[in-house]
Amino acid sequence: MSRLFAIFLALTASAVMTTAAHADVRVLTSIKPLQLIAAAVQDGIGMPEVLLPPGASPHNYALRPSDVRRVGEVDLLYWIGPDMESFLPRVLATRKLPSVSVQALPGLHLRHFAVDSESHEAADPAEHDHDHQPGSLDAHLWLSSFNARVIAAKMAADLSAADPANAEHYQRNLKAFDDRLDTMDANIKARVAGVAGQPFFVFHEAFDYFEDAYGLKHTGVFSVAAEVQPGAQHVAAMRARLTEVGKTCVFSEPPMRPRLAETLTAGLPVKLAELDGLGGYTPASVQGYEQMMEKLGSDLAGCLESL
């Protein structure tokens, strides 16, 4: 028995929700990566919806009245949790149907943002993303294929309980997803193997799960709190770090490149590129999750190989 099938059976047995047989189970996810996982599980039966539009930040999204109505009406709702979508708890408090904070699922491999052992703060301004406090949960957990398997198993269990007539179909989809992730992991490891030791920088500390899974490690994080403009001393320190490293890549996230990027890299042998950890424009298809993850690996490796 595979580890994923064992998880599926355990979650199915413990699912607490209606067992009325119907194929039209309406699923809503907060963000695109969860929609991509749900699409793999629901393949051939239904298509999950997603709450946030492409390019929207899950950290500070402003719900519209139509969004609030959808949150209240769908049969199953999946979100990362309060460490990611801080705008959702108040709305979910009035929801009557099942909702799942995936960060609370048993069996996940979770990471926390690093804490300096002496000062509990990073001495170097390029060491931490100031929007993610040292010691807090790193909620970008979908960028681990191990965690994607756990999330998919939970979704399959919930859907089987809500739609028992199609339980066998959800189980087959879950097994197919598990098999494809084995292939995906091998593909990404092969793609990034040649750049594993090269330094690179990010504007948002969002990729630690991905880096850990595939033998990568960013050199620094060029970010300040969203509401704070970086001072001249901070910018000078970050430019000094880039100058010290030499040829490298600095990755931002779509849809907007930070204005700070041009100031930081002007006159330096540095390339600016993007990594889309939210898969904002990835089609919601049966293989959408793998496409999002493999594109991350290809975009990262491609920039570093071009130096």
Rank of each mutant, 00 (worst) to 15 (best):
R3I: 10
L4G: 09
F5S: 13
L11I: 06
T12Q: 14
S14K: 01
S14I: 03
V16N: 04
A21N: 10
V27E: 12
K32H: 09
Q35C: 02
Q35W: 10
A40Q: 05
M47H: 14
L51H: 00
L52G: 00
L52A: 09
P54T: 05
G55V: 05
A56D: 11
R64T: 06
P65S: 12
R70W: 07
G72A: 06
L77D: 05
R90Q: 06
R90F: 12
R95Q: 08
V102C: 03
H109R: 15
L110N: 01
H112I: 08
F113W: 12
A114L: 10
H120A: 07
A122E: 08
A126W: 15
H128K: 09
H130L: 15
D138T: 00
L143V: 09
S145H: 10
V150P: 02
A153P: 05
K154N: 02
L159N: 02
A167Q: 03
Q171S: 15
Q171P: 02
Q171I: 12
R172A: 13
R172T: 04
A176W: 04
L181G: 09
A186C: 12
A190T: 13
G194W: 05
V195I: 08
V195L: 01
E205C: 01
D208S: 15
H218C: 02
F222E: 12
A225T: 11
A226V: 12
V228M: 07
Q229L: 13
Q233I: 10
Q233F: 13
V235Y: 01
V235Q: 12
M238G: 02
M238R: 08
K247V: 06
K247W: 05
V250K: 01
P255N: 00
A261G: 08
T263K: 05
T265S: 11
P269N: 08
E274I: 01
G280I: 13
T282C: 09
P283T: 04
Q287I: 11
Q291M: 13
Q291N: 09
G297F: 14
C303D: 09
E305S: 15
